[in-house]
């Protein structure tokens, strides 16, 4: 299992469009990817639950990845967040 934390820089937070992109990205991997904000969490492949986390600009989220391709997923999710959110 691998983890990283990320502070959201996009002014709108995880709004509809980037949430959609995140879902697409997360579906590329076999590993399960969980996004956690404080006590709430959502699978990264679940669009509405992800939006439902209400992640805003400046929020710190934790991304937890576990599965056979977690190394690669870890790398790519990190660059996805820094490029898009």
């Amino acid at each position: 299992m691998k983890k990283f934390t990320y502070e959201i820089k996009d002014q709108l937070g995880i709004h509809a469009r980037p949430a959609g992109m995140l879902v697409k990205e997360a579906k590329k991997f076999e590993s399960s990817i969980v996004i956690r904000k404080e006590e709430k969490e959502s699978g990264a492949t679940k669009l509405m639950a992800l939006m439902g986390l209400g992640v805003k600009c400046g929020d710190k989220i934790e991304v937890e990845i576990s599965g056979p391709d977690e190394e690669q997923a870890f790398e790519e999710m990190q660059s996805f967040f820094s490029e898009n959110l």
Binding site: R17, V23, K46, M48, A49
Partner: peptide, 16 residues
């Protein structure tokens, strides 16, 4: 137009 792409993705939402 972006909103309709979001709608389409909502229709693929696992939980829903």
């Amino acid at each position: 137009a972006a909103i309709f792409e979001v709608h389409r993705m909502m229709l693929e939402d696992e939980d829903y």
